[in-house]
């Protein structure tokens, strides 16, 4: 199963990357979701996969069972899932707002929100000083 899971995560990762490279706004959202699935699987696969051995202590004196799944990756993934919901919600709303404000879903057309589209003259102040020796 480790192999299968690794391949699955790899495909999810590749699909996520592919989607995040698209120019359409909504596809990036899909890419984000795919990437978070991939990362969760990556974490999950970092410990041996055991069927039907949940990390619960049996009743009694609390001695751990012989074999149990590693609880640490599970704790990590649990919070990651919940956080990714927050992130997705934020991204969704942000993109909806961007789409509403700019009226386009093509990322290439949003370039000017990030970099100055006209050439800006820099270092003009340096020239305003006389040059003594």
């Amino acid at each position: 199963m480790t192999w299968l899971l690794a391949i699955t995560a790899g495909v999810l990762f590749a699909a996520g990357l592919y989607m995040i490279l698209r120019r359409s706004l909504v596809k990036i959202l899909v890419g984000l979701a795919l990437l978070s699935y991939a990362v969760n699987l990556l974490l999950f696969n970092s410990a041996p996969l055991l069927p039907a051995r949940p990390p619960l202590l049996p009743p009694g004196n609390g001695a751990p069972p012989e074999v149990y799944a590693d609880p640490l990756p599970q704790a990590l993934i649990l919070t990651a899932i919940v956080i990714s919901f927050g992130v997705t919600a934020f991204a969704v709303v942000l993109m909806r707002q961007v789409y509403g404000t700019l009226g386009t879903d093509d990322l290439n057309e949003m370039r000017c929100t990030d970099v100055p589209c006209e050439e800006v003259e820099i270092a003009s102040e340096e020239e305003q000083m006389e040059e003594p020796l």
Partner: peptide, 26 residues
Amino acid sequence: FALTGGLLMTLLMLLVSRHTSDASVA
């Protein structure tokens, strides 16, 4: 490009799951 990224991910996972046998934290 995405395929390269995915392949690396798969490779890393297979390497990692081979090498982390330290269960002392757990």
